[in-house]
Design a protein around this nucleic acid. Sequence first.
DNA 1: TCCTTATGTACAA
DNA 2: TGTACCTAAGGAC
Length: 269
Amino acid sequence: MPEGHTIHRLAKDYAAAFARTAVRVTSPQGKFTDSAALLDGTVLTTADAHGKHLFLGFGDHHWVHIHLGLFGKVTFGPAPAPPPTDTVRLRLADDTTYVDLRGPTTCALITDPEKQAIHDRLGPDPLRPDADPAAAYRRISRSRTTIATLLMDQKVIAGVGNVYRAEVLFRHGIDPYRPGKDITPAEWDAIWQDLTALMREGVRNNRIDTVRPEHTPEAMGRPPRVDDHGGEVYVYRRANRPCHLCGSPVRTADLAARNLFWCPACQKR
DNA sequence: TCCTTATGTACAA
DNA sequence: TGTACCTAAGGAC
């Protein structure tokens, strides 16, 4: 689940469920017990997201910094909360709702300056209104590194993960191995605009869909389908299956320990 | 029941 | 580049 859209959606959901209310805070698993005890009974004031980082604000200057990593999951449910399983790192609860966090890479209590330091090392996030796409392009346009690697580098652009990377490069006909310095300003503008729209829709729907209306199975006269991860996509996890546009087999390769997917015919070097 | 895999990142060598 | 970390689902037996 967790690319930037998931985290921004979680920030909204945490705020909608708990903001301005005193919350019971526990760590059934025991790895966050001391911090949970400190926060227990205080007010959740705000929830903020930057890229794949989630920040829950308690009181005036306490932040819980959460990063889901590859496996982290968050589940909301109505009160009364069931007995927690022993993998629940963090549970928030009030009289109407509970929410459990499992398997995060990070769940830590941090200060204002520590939070600021995280913002400072992250690149612009298409889902944040203050984002500056030119800052990302300055790095990309000077780099011999491939655009596929740059899009996953959170210092360059925050929030893009393996699915949005594969899909946005397909949508713009760009070979993932093209060096960043060969991406034109017009191409970058189009990629950024597209990511903004796709990720906003991802927040709305809580899933990643990237197939244009004219390319849906219905529009193409094909049987309906659901891709493996729950959304509808062009190339992600479709290795060796025919490209929806040209029919060529979708290619896959290892890049920095992640699976890359692309159509060698539709995407140009 | 075991094995593999996954929308991520940090750190060591 | 490799490895460690965190969890759960799905598929092979």
